[in-house]
Each structure stands twice: as structure tokens, then as C-alpha cells.
Design a protein around this nucleic acid. Structure first.
Lengths: 136, 136
DNA sequence: ATAATCTTTGCAATCGAGTTGCACTAAAAG
DNA sequence: CTTTTAGTGCAACTCGATTGCAAAGATTAT
């Protein structure tokens, strides 16, 4: 597991106070977080600073964003070596009970046969249901 | 192809002026529409009435909603016999150039092997890229 | 047929996630 | 040390989504 300093260095993103704390927070959690989640967790850190930090991280492929249908975009740290290409895709699982979003790195995504002349750039695959904790 | 009156009758949704015009409009288009799209197309019909109509349609499985990442939820008429179960799933294709969303009814979705004890309820699969018209 | 009741509609107001302008501070370059 | 560039915090604003409420329309009971 890489530390936040290592990741920032590898991705050539300057290390600042807000960036360090946001990235450390994301790394410490296994589930994708919304801006509001992060804001709540990191009291005293400004929302717009977190917002801009997330944008910077996304541009530099440190994190990827997920539209899970909860109304809030969520963010998760990319796996090592991820370039956010279609080949780096994975499913996301959104629990309709606890509102948590998981990255299903282990579930393979099959190749999608698009209609004639359509060009794939990326994809957002969200599976919804109950997570193991809520399915009791 | 069913008419709007037939669909409303089958789904046991009372036929009203707004419902008829909204459903007719959706049926006439092959691409998923946002609330704003519909509002613009149907001048003189109130936004909140359209909004509530869409909610009613969705609850009664007349249409399904799609989060294509454009920031606006889009709606498309369900195929005949659709119950919006996982088995009725299809991919949606969002064109990053023209902002249109297509239902890919003909592209099969493989069965997803979820982790232990996760329960599938539904899914939102959006593939992004260029549509045939924009990929030139 | 008429009154009472429930549903739908239109308008205005509100909510909330996302985003931006701007001044201030910190860091990097000269 | 001074100049320049980048990052931060605050407040304001945008815009899609949603709701409260009263008027209009449809349905049911009398």
C-alpha cells in the first residue's frame, strides 16, 4: 500500500496540507466517499478546497469518480497502475440500504460489443442492491 | 407499438392531460430525455407537473431513469414486458459529444457474479463515448 | 344532480450539490 | 528579499430537483 506522499510524488501533484489530509482519508476507507462525507469527516477543512482537491486528484488519475445514483458523486482512490482507461474498469456496488458504495475490483467486466461505429471512452457501471452487511 | 392510452391502461395509471402528452412525447423519441428536455419540448406544461408525472411513471414501471453522468437524470420508456428487474437490464450509451443517451437493447448484459451475500436489485450501466453520428 | 372527497395541476418557493469569484496566504522562482 | 505562481477559505451563486399550497378537475357518496 502506498502512502499519500508516495502517490502524490508518483502522480506529480504537489503535496499540500489539504491534499495530504484528503488523500490520507480516502486511503483509510475502503468505500467511495462523497464530497459531503469527506467534509464531515474532516472538520475545519473548507468544502471548496476539498472540492478543488478532488478535481485535481481526478485530473491526475489519483482518484476516480462514481455516479452511483445517490445524487452525490463519490470518489475512490484508483488502484495502483490504474489509468482510468476502459480497461481499468470495475463495477461499483451501491447498497440501497446503507448508502455505501464499494469498488468491486475482483469482478471482471466483460468486453462490451457496441453498435457499429460507436466508440467507447469510459463507463460507469453501478450495480445496486444490498451489501453483505445489510442483507441479513 | 403500444399507444400511450394502452400503456396507461395496462399499468393502471389514470389517464390525464399531462400524462398523455408526456408519454406520447417519450414514445415519439428514441433517446432518453431529461426533465428539461421534456419541459422545453412541451411548452406550456409546468415543470413540476412533468416532474411528478415522471415519478408516477417510474413507480409504475412505465419508464425507467438513467443516470448518465451528464448531471441530469434521463428517462426512457420501458420496453414492453419490462418489469425493471435486473433481468430487464440493458446498457445505456451516453455520447460525450452530443449529450444524447441511447438505450442499447440489443447488447446483452452478462450475469454479474457478486461477492458472497451481496444481493442484486438493479443496475445502472452507462457506457460513454462517441455515438455513430459524432464519431466521424 | 349536488355536495363532499380525492387527485392532479400550476406557480412560487425552497433545497442542496456543485461551482466560482475574490482576497488572502503560502510556496516557489528569480 | 522580492516577485510570481499556486493553494486556501469564505461567501455567493447556479441549476436540477423537490415541495407547499391553493385552484382546478375528477370521482364518490348522498
Amino acid at each position: 500500500m502506498q502512502t499519500e506522499e508516495e502517490i502524490l510524488k508518483i502522480k506529480k501533484v504537489k503535496n499540500t496540507a489539504v491534499r495530504t489530509v484528503v488523500l490520507r482519508h480516502l486511503l483509510s476507507l475502503e468505500k467511495a466517499q462523497s464530497l459531503k462525507d469527506i467534509e464531515n469527516a474532516l472538520a475545519y477543512t473548507d468544502r471548496s478546497s476539498i472540492f478543488r482537491t478532488l478535481k485535481t486528484f481526478e485530473e491526475n488519475k489519483i482518484i476516480h469518480s462514481i455516479e452511483d445514483g445517490s445524487g452525490m458523486t463519490k470518489y475512490a482512490v484508483c488502484a495502483e497502475g490504474c489509468n482510468c482507461d476502459p480497461k481499468d474498469l470495475h463495477y461499483h456496488f451501491y447498497c440501497t440500504n446503507c448508502d455505501k458504495t464499494f469498488c468491486l475490483f475482483d469482478v471482471p467486466i466483460p468486453k462490451i460489443q457496441l453498435p457499429e461505429n460507436f466508440k467507447l471512452q469510459q463507463a460507469n457501471m453501478v450495480v445496486k442492491g444490498l451489501c453483505d452487511n445489510c442483507n441479513k
